[in-house]
């Protein structure tokens, strides 16, 4: 039904920023016992300036995949390439975490500046850049506030500003809006789209929300659990900018949503590790795949 691009085939493309080829990663459980496979033969690629959503139920290795792309952990087998080489954490790759991870004793300015400290910039350049990204995320008024005084949405803006300050060409986002209330989340999505349109980094955006994936992404990589792998990639051919019209009312949107939701449900019901495993849960009309 949907076109599933073959990532390996396209990895010769000069425009491709991030390539994963048959990546496996497993972890030893803290309590001992057999290693748990988090990712098995996961392959995907992200082109320059493209927005890819990694969609999947919890426990399908989405976060592991991002950490591999950032170079925070190494794959057991397979290759991870960013700009044609194994990635190393640094200014070229930005990371926005679900839990914000702001330094509590540093004010907003210092939190944002934290990602600029080791780039060899002058103090004036750092100050200028910090000021600019803080303005971009709309927090100029709160530049001298401590994180504890900010709301969840504002904290995530600070984290986003920190990730954007070094002007990364790849931006990794790990369920960045999952702990933000629904109203704020919608506005943050628009905000992110605006910023992305201006800066155009390649984005890997992890989410378990089908709607969020469709609204934001150029392409959705659907991931399945036990062990985690990329099942299919689905292009989102909805016109941009999507905040200027009601994309949710488009027939194409509804179609995508149906397909992705039913696949997600299948994964959960057929995953032995899931609490819903083997449950006979009624599917809404027309939701069968």
């Amino acid at each position: 039904m949907m076109s599933a691009g073959d990532p390996v085939e396209r990895s010769g493309d000069a425009e491709v920023r991030v390539v994963l080829d048959r990546v496996c990663k497993s972890f030893a459980p803290a309590g001992g016992g057999d290693r748990v496979s988090a990712l098995q033969d996961a392959s995907l690629s992200v082109g320059s300036g493209k927005f890819l959503a990694l969609l999947g139920p919890s426990g399908c290795g989405k976060t592991t995949l991002l950490r591999l792309v950032d170079g925070l952990i190494q794959p057991d087998s397979g290759t991870v390439h960013v700009f044609g080489a194994p990635p190393r954490p640094g200014p070229d790759i930005g990371f926005v975490f679900q839990s914000f991870r702001l330094i509590p004793w540093a004010k907003v300015t210092r939190n944002v500046d934290f990602s600029l400290r080791d780039l060899g910039l002058t103090a004036a350049e750092r100050e200028e850049r910090t000021r600019r990204v803080i303005k971009m995320v709309g927090l100029t008024r709160f530049a001298n506030a401590y994180p504890a005084t900010l709301s969840g949405g504002m904290k995530q803006r600070v984290a986003l500003a920190r990730a954007l300050a070094p002007e990364p060409k790849v931006l990794l986002m790990d369920e960045p809006f999952a702990s933000i209330d629904a109203q704020t989340r919608e506005l943050m999505q628009i905000e992110l789209m605006r910023i992305w349109t201006r800066r155009r980094p390649a984005v890997l955006f992890v989410t378990h929300s089908v709607d969020e994936a469709i609204i934001l992404a150029d392409e959705i990589a659907l991931m399945g659990p036990s062990p985690g792998k990329v099942i299919e990639t689905v292009p989102v051919d909805l016109e941009r900018p999507r905040w200027t019209y009601d994309a949710r009312a488009e027939p194409r949107y509804v179609e995508l949503r149906k397909h992705l939701s039913s696949r997600m449900r299948q994964f959960v019901l057929s995953d032995p590790a899931s609490e819903f495993f083997g449950r006979d849960l009624v599917q809404p009309d027309g939701m069968g795949s």
């Binding site: 925070l72 640094g90 975490f97 839990s99 330094i103 004793w105 934290f114 080791d118 920190r162």
Partner: peptide, 24 residues
């Protein structure tokens, strides 16, 4: 641990992680 990983992902050298995250 989360702040430590954040600092590593930003590319902060080990010594700086110690002085700017661990010690404070």
């Amino acid at each position: 641990e989360e702040l430590l990983e954040m600092a590593r992902s930003v590319g902060t050298p080990r010594g700086r992680i110690f002085t700017s995250i661990v010690l404070p």
